[in-house]
Design a protein around this nucleic acid. Structure first.
Lengths: 242, 242
DNA sequence: ATTAGTTGTCTACACAAATAGACAAATAGG
DNA sequence: CCTATTTGTCTATTTGTGTAGACAACTAAT
């Protein structure tokens, strides 16, 4: 007897509720006993057990027979500033995080109407599409798709492959500095392909940032779409701090 | 025999995939026939039918016997600017949208450590908690929880109830103007309670904005946590535009 | 040693989800 | 009118989910 037939199993919703309770601090170190959780969520004890099993394989919980079920210490969410100056490496190192970008693909595509408008080029013009994966401590954190005009930046791919940094690759291509013009943020369920790349659950949530970088003459440099895993990131916007 | 046992039913995943294909433009006006969709997603035709049924009651699709299944025109995502000046009413009216805020609850609570730090008051100090629902054309768009110091703003609740605007309520309380100090954004699955208030699917995704507003002397005025439905909103950050 | 409280495992049953096949009903094009 | 294509409906079967109860295994405290 389901309240809402939304195609999500009962144990999964219990698991999500427990995860939310942990995130919000309602549950701290130790979970209530299974029978109590079952009552609280209005399900059978076995359903709770399945939820706990899922969260255990996720690494969030640890059950000990006779003692109880405990919450494993979790790494804090990485705070990612969005502002004019977006430099992935700099931002991470301020939080004592040693990042590494990984090139996972590059190809040439033709600009569609939307991309052409963003980059201020003509429809059908050739673009470099650069796929990157940001990794921290061996854990994938985000995936980015960058678009560059082939005409303006013919060698951007090899420059990035050499330096491992967009900032440095752009400097090699004659762009001494750049800034972010606009960032648009939304959220979706992760796509199956991204779930594999980011090594996350198939139903994880990603924050999606669509942005355009411009050089000091306000000419578009790159259009970049980044998917951040929502449970590993928090985007921060501070007006006053540069 | 499921590929990944993540507690999400097969028809739901097909429905999500179709929704994503429509959002990304892979599917434009008309859906492929059910048998073809079944093949493509590796499921039975009846499973596809169930997915289509769900998307139809959602209003996204419209099936016509003998002809095919078609995509209904969708309202574009509302673009919500995040910056120093955040005025819900102003922002909406620039997009020719007539908004209305609805007071759905108010109570007094004691500040916990995090809230106290944000608002620069002592732990345990009394707070007004103001729950609002933003509605556009009868459709719920977002839910906000605002926190105000009772000591500094004793009558903020009644002032909001009268004016229906935070900006005006603050003016009545002696704050002529204010600005946003910091906004932090993440995303989560909607909570059951919010799903009811926002009239959305139980597994919808919400963008969560945690922000602090300060007056012209940089003294904290309110701490506000807003949940935007991710499929109805896009948050936009432009550094240069005020 | 005993007891209360907890997690782990087992069997059984009712019901929903997914698959499979067949055919009806409507549409569009020759 | 006839045919191919498409959505709608029906029955049947298999697999998965959730419930129910009982008991074992382990822990901590008395």
């Amino acid at each position: 007897m389901h309240a809402l037939d939304d195609g999500i199993s009962r144990w999964r919703r219990v698991a999500d509720a427990i995860r939310a309770d942990i995130a919000s601090g309602v549950i701290a170190q130790q979970l209530p006993p299974e029978v109590e959780l079952a009552e609280r969520h209005g399900v059978n004890r076995h359903t709770v057990r399945r939820a706990i099993a899922a969260l255990s394989t996720e690494g969030l919980l640890r059950a000990e027979r006779g003692r109880g079920t405990f919450v494993n210490a979790q790494p804090p969410r990485v705070i990612y500033p969005i502002g004019e100056r977006v430099r992935f490496r700099e931002n991470m190192m301020k939080q004592s995080i040693e990042p590494s970008g990984r090139l996972i693909g590059a190809e040439r595509v033709a600009a569609d109407a939307r991309q052409a408008a963003l980059l201020n080029i003509s429809v059908g013009a050739p673009l470099h599409r650069l796929e990157r994966l940001a990794v921290v401590d061996g854990m994938p954190m985000s995936r980015s798709t960058s678009l560059f005009s082939v005409e303006r930046f013919p060698d951007i791919i090899s420059a990035y492959a050499e330096t491992g940094s967009i900032t440095q690759a752009l400097q090699k291509s004659g762009v001494s500095d750049y800034r972010r013009r606009e960032t648009r943020i939304t959220a979706e369920r992760v796509s199956p392909h991204d779930a594999e790349l980011l090594q996350c659950a198939a139903d994880a949530i990603v924050l999606i940032s669509n942005a355009v970088d411009v050089d000091m003459e306000d000419k578009p440099v790159q259009s970049v779409r980044t998917r951040f895993l929502a449970d590993r990131f928090e985007l921060s916007f501070k007006p006053d701090v540069d």
